Amino acid sequence: MQTVRHNMNKTLRRRLSISILTLFLTQIGFSQSIEKFVDSTIKVDRLNVPTDLRQPYFPKEMFPEVEMDWIKTDNGTKIVTKVKEGTYDEFVVNWYSKHLHAMKEPLLFNRKIDKEIYRFTWLRTFDKPMTFRFEKGNDGYILYWKVLTGSGGYEPGEIEVERIKILTEKEWAEFTQLVGKSDFWNMDLGRSSIGTDGSEWIMEGVNQTDYRAVSVWSPSKGNFYNTCDYLISLVNLKIPEREKY
């Protein structure tokens, strides 16, 4: 009896060890450690806003190039995108960064922090660029949002709206649940799909250990859409549903 119990315990310990190792390897494979991006040589002001307009807002590794193929099917033409590993989409990074510079937003990747932050940058081709930055820190839960006068697909313009809102632990919990449902920390890096006109939905996340950035072109439903849309719903910007493209 003791021998059977010993063998069972040994088997359970082995399975537990394998499970822990699998989880560890999974995290290594999908997470992007903030350690690899920290760069004290980047010139910033006291709010961590870059002072050089040429400074990218994203590490190169976050935005590999995406190539697009048109494949003929029985139902028409289907567009298939593929990420080119080991490349850097300089055009996209400069485009996104230009709008974040105009918003005077802080960098999120260049130094370690004791907060957890998510930033949704919304660039609609023909509408005003917006950003929503939700922070959890020692001071509580704060949402910062800004609106520019320009257009997401063209020139950014200047800051038209800049607001701060104190939120609750419940609202943070609801948002992070949506982040979990969208599987944000495991999403494909960079710009996962492309198209003409439409909009760019760019989400960044950073905490004490990890940083990640993804971009989705013109989502209209799904968990990622719901995550970003929740941030829009927390502010007093009355945006018609038809303009949430």
Rank of each mutant, 00 (worst) to 15 (best):
E35Y: 04
P50M: 03
D45E: 13
S17V: 13
T51K: 09
T41Y: 03
I34F: 02
P50K: 05
T51H: 01
T51N: 07
D39R: 14
I42F: 06
E35H: 02
T22W: 08
L47N: 15
L21H: 06
S17C: 04
L53V: 11
S19Q: 12
T26P: 04
K43S: 11
F37R: 02
V38C: 12
S40D: 14
T22E: 10
T51I: 15
V38K: 14
D45K: 09
I20L: 10
D52L: 03
S31F: 15
S40C: 03
Q55F: 06
S17Q: 10
I34R: 04
V44R: 05
Q55V: 09
E35V: 06
S33L: 09
V38N: 10
P50G: 12
L25V: 06
I20C: 01
L21G: 01
F37Y: 10
L23E: 13
I28S: 14
I28F: 12
L47W: 15
L23H: 12
S19R: 14
S17W: 07
S33W: 13
R54I: 03
S19C: 10
V44F: 03
K43A: 11
P50C: 07
P50E: 06
T41W: 08
V38Y: 05
Q27P: 00
S40A: 10
R54S: 12
L25M: 08
K36S: 03
L23N: 08
L47M: 08
T41D: 14
K43C: 02
T22Q: 08
G29W: 01
R46E: 09
R54G: 15
Q27A: 00
E35W: 04
Q27V: 13
L25A: 08
G29L: 01
K43L: 15
I42Y: 00
V38I: 05
K43V: 14
D39T: 04
D45Q: 11
T41M: 09
F30G: 02
K36M: 10
Q27D: 07
I20M: 04
G29H: 01
D52G: 12
V38S: 11
T22R: 08
S31G: 08
F24E: 04
R54P: 06
F30C: 04
F30D: 03
Q32N: 14
I20N: 06
F30K: 01
R54T: 13
V44Q: 02
L25C: 05
K36I: 11
V44W: 04
S31Q: 14
E35I: 06
L21T: 05
S40K: 06
T41G: 02
Q32W: 05
I18Y: 12
G29M: 01
L23Q: 09
K36Y: 05
Q32L: 08
S31A: 14
S17K: 12
